[in-house]
Design a protein around this nucleic acid. Sequence first.
DNA 1: AACAAACGAGAGCAGTGCTCTTGACACTGC
DNA 2: GCAGTGTCAAGAGCACTGCTCTCGTTTGTT
Lengths: 263, 263
Amino acid sequence: MVQSGDMQHVESKPRTARDRARAEVTMEIKAAARRRLAADGAAALSLRAVARDVGMVSSAVYRYFPSRDDLLTALIVDAYAAVGAAARAADETIPRAESLRRWLVVSAAVRSWARSTPHEYGLIFGTPVPGYRAPVDTVDPAASVPLILFDIIAVGAAAGGVVSWSERPMPAALRRELGAVRTALAGSLDGSLDGAAAVSDAALGQGIMAWTQLIGAISFEMFGHLHNVIDDHEVYFAQQMRNVGLDLGLDVTRPRRRSGRAT
Amino acid sequence: MVQSGDMQHVESKPRTARDRARAEVTMEIKAAARRRLAADGAAALSLRAVARDVGMVSSAVYRYFPSRDDLLTALIVDAYAAVGAAARAADETIPRAESLRRWLVVSAAVRSWARSTPHEYGLIFGTPVPGYRAPVDTVDPAASVPLILFDIIAVGAAAGGVVSWSERPMPAALRRELGAVRTALAGSLDGSLDGAAAVSDAALGQGIMAWTQLIGAISFEMFGHLHNVIDDHEVYFAQQMRNVGLDLGLDVTRPRRRSGRAT
DNA sequence: AACAAACGAGAGCAGTGCTCTTGACACTGC
DNA sequence: GCAGTGTCAAGAGCACTGCTCTCGTTTGTT
């Protein structure tokens, strides 16, 4: 179902031995960096330390990554890919028409990815590291989870789901921006983008809200802002996401149907 | 109206000249650190650099802050106090009964504080700096904005506002936790906490969602996650907050009143 | 075989957090 | 008034960082 076209970065087999070695060493460096990131966090990631881990001297690492920030950028791209893959894998366990369950499963998958690799989560959803420049490399993989959410909402809307914001007025300027967002998202969905048009401006706006809520809730939990407020994050998160999903009108399969479902 | 009891940290005038000098130098260091923080961000905050700025040598600064992290912690506490003060100042411009307008004005105040001091915002709502330990000092000022939001919701609920999640079931475990949260928040409100009891579990849960949504939306904007998605953050944010406020049932004064406000 | 590019190693620079020691100053009790 | 006590700024120093440059060596291409 949802698959952004990210097949092209499986570059053709490196021919020369040097290229092959280079690719391998690059991966080794990234793996070591990821290990140190998981252990100590992004702020404490030292290029010299990862160089020691892979048995090189620090200056040699600069042949592969021109600066420490570039190493971090590479890790960011990988992290985006990882969370996108986790979300996609979860999504594929649920029939495409069951929008609510898809939303619950995907949001839970994002949360559990964050809990399993908190520093990588902080890397992409926390404070931007140095002066922040979002290179073009990061914008494409960053959209993979929102893309899944858009598909869920589109299917739900096409099935007659009604969003709770649908009756509210919306500024024309915002409608224009959301229109551009819709066409961009619909263009990234390969298969049946027939449902994309069914996503109203209100649904799109509320969908972005849901995406914000998902990341906001996980960030609150991961960054400790719910300390002394919520103990059982598991049930709290599930409850919040369920309510957000219901507000999104995703329970289109449930209302008065015992198990079969109409179109 | 809402005022957490944070008057006690106006410690009595330092008597001896040495104490006075110490307090003054401490403030000078914090001011310089805040300046460098605003310029370069938390990651680049160097204790030696702020020492140079105040005309001291680095080791002298350690007489006032035992480590760099302690300096950052002091800045975090100040940042919490600043955003709380901004929110409170905005809240006091609106009559207490107009819950929706209070919500809109307070959320806008938080956003504009974030935009004016982005690095301080990142300091408290971004990735926790090193290994993260939230000292007891930070938990009290951190609650000031949520406290205001709770008061807004309590007044709205007492005036008959109905939250959109009110019909949804909620796990008993979560109800228990929210009960503790309610008594804690109600206890921090000095004046008329009669309305606090009117805040149902559903309203409280949705209130935390609104708080999450507020910070999530600002974080998305500040950290660049809405790049190529939203251009006019101003109208987008206002629209989102308005819808969240309406879902919270805060428009209790508007329905059938032409212009004069009641109470 | 000859040449150029890529590579790893090492030295070195400027900067960092933090510790320790030293001498000067201010406050306190006699 | 004066010694004793604690606080203070300063400097040197340690281990570490990101990053640059140079130096032989290896590798791929012509």
